[in-house]
Simulated scan of single mutants.
Amino acid sequence: MHDFIEPIFHPGAHPRFCLNALRHLGGWRDRATAAEKNRRLSASTFTELFSGDWLDLMSPRAPVIHGGNWPSLVESARVAARGCASTGWILALVGGHGSIVRRLPAACQDQLYSKGSRQLFASASSSGESRLSLETAGMRVNGRWRFSSGVDDASWLLLNAPCHNHPDATRTPRFLVLVETRDVQRLDSWDSSGMAATGSHDVLTEQLLVPHDRIFALHEIFAADLNRQSEDYIDRLPLVPYLTTSIIGPLLGCAEGAHAAYIASMASSAEIADARVSEQAAHSAAQLFSAQLLYHSLISRLHDAGCHGRELDPGQLLLLKRDRAYLAQQCVEVVRRLVERLGASSLVGGNPLHRHWRDIQTMAAHRDVAWSDAMFASGESALRPV
Rank of each mutant, 00 (worst) to 15 (best):
W190E: 07
M139Q: 13
R144Q: 08
V179R: 00
S126I: 03
T170C: 11
V179G: 03
W190T: 06
L159T: 02
N142P: 01
S149P: 09
V141N: 00
R131D: 07
S125Q: 14
R182M: 13
T136A: 15
S130P: 00
P173A: 12
A161I: 05
N142Q: 11
A122W: 06
D183M: 11
L157K: 01
D188T: 08
Q185W: 12
P167R: 11
D188M: 10
F175C: 04
V141P: 00
Q185C: 13
E135V: 04
A124N: 09
V179M: 06
E129A: 11
T181S: 04
F147H: 12
S155H: 10
S148V: 04
H164M: 14
D188P: 01
L157D: 00
D153H: 15
F121W: 07
E129N: 13
G138D: 14
W145N: 14
C163Y: 01
A124G: 12
W156G: 05
D153T: 15
S127E: 05
L176C: 04
D152S: 07
N165W: 02
T181P: 07
W145S: 13
D183H: 12
C163I: 01
W190S: 06
D188F: 09
T136H: 15
S189C: 07
H166A: 04
R144L: 09
T172G: 12
E129F: 12
D168S: 12
N142Y: 03
P162R: 01
H166R: 05
W190P: 02
E180G: 12
S189I: 06
T170A: 10
G150Q: 03
P167D: 08
R140Y: 08
F147C: 15
A124P: 10
A122N: 08
S126K: 05
A137I: 07
V151D: 03
Q185Y: 11
R146A: 11
C163W: 00
W190I: 06
W190R: 07
F175Y: 04
P167E: 05
R171P: 14
F147T: 14
N160P: 13
R171G: 14
S127M: 06
A124L: 12
L176A: 04
E180V: 10
A169S: 11
H164A: 14
D152Q: 10
T170V: 11
L178A: 02
V151C: 06
S133T: 07
H164S: 12
V177H: 00
A169C: 13
D153P: 15
V177Y: 00
N160E: 13
F175I: 03
T172M: 09
H164V: 14
E129M: 10
